[in-house]
């Protein structure tokens, strides 16, 4: 057993874990963070994507012991004071999910992508989420949602999404 200290969604945890424990299993089974899903278990599907020290990773391909001392953010930690993250809002608004299984990982990867590239074109979105598989939607609305979220997250964008941009921003 090895002692693993991690901060997950702002809460500190210290646990003894077997070195062979995958981070995703530690999150789900020990810490109760079941918002992060196990999809393929082969490093392909991206359903288990979380942020490790600010970078998106497939948590099925990281050992819990490797995360010792690290800060982890899961889908459960991105809403603020009951207010959904803009990417969560956009997935809702653009209907970017059907069964929803890929959604937690897809959103975590989209947030990472927008951190590196705040205004991606369609090709950049598709490449940015190539590590996340969706078997329902055909990706169209996911791509729209990520681009929609990018507009919401732009500096100076109106906080109230109901307000027309032209009014709030004083015209083109």
């Amino acid at each position: 057993m090895a002692e693993v200290r991690v901060t997950v969604d702002g809460v500190n945890y210290t646990d003894d874990v077997e070195p062979r424990t995958l981070l995703v299993h530690h999150l789900r089974e020990r810490l109760g963070k079941t918002g992060t899903l196990v999809g393929c278990d082969t490093s392909n599907c991206g359903a288990c994507t979380v942020h490790l020290n600010g970078q998106s990773v497939k948590s099925c391909t990281v050992l819990a012991v490797q995360a010792d001392g690290a800060e982890v953010t899961t889908i459960e930690g991105i809403a603020r004071d009951g207010q959904l993250h803009p990417v969560q809002e956009a997935f809702n608004e653009f209907h970017a999910l059907q069964c929803g299984y890929c959604t937690p990982g897809m959103i975590m990867q989209a947030i990472d992508l927008l951190g590196d590239n705040p205004d991606p074109d369609e090709r950049e979105v598709r490449e940015g989420i190539e590590g996340n598989l969706c078997r329902c939607t055909g990706y169209q609305n996911i791509v729209r949602a990520v681009q929609g979220a990018a507009q919401k997250m732009k500096p100076g964008a109106p906080a109230d999404t109901e307000t027309p941009v032209g009014v709030a921003g004083g015209g083109e």
Partner: peptide, 9 residues
């Protein structure tokens, strides 16, 4: 190589 998550690690 692979995808964004893999390239982070």
């Amino acid at each position: 190589v692979a995808d964004g998550q893999v390239r982070h690690r």
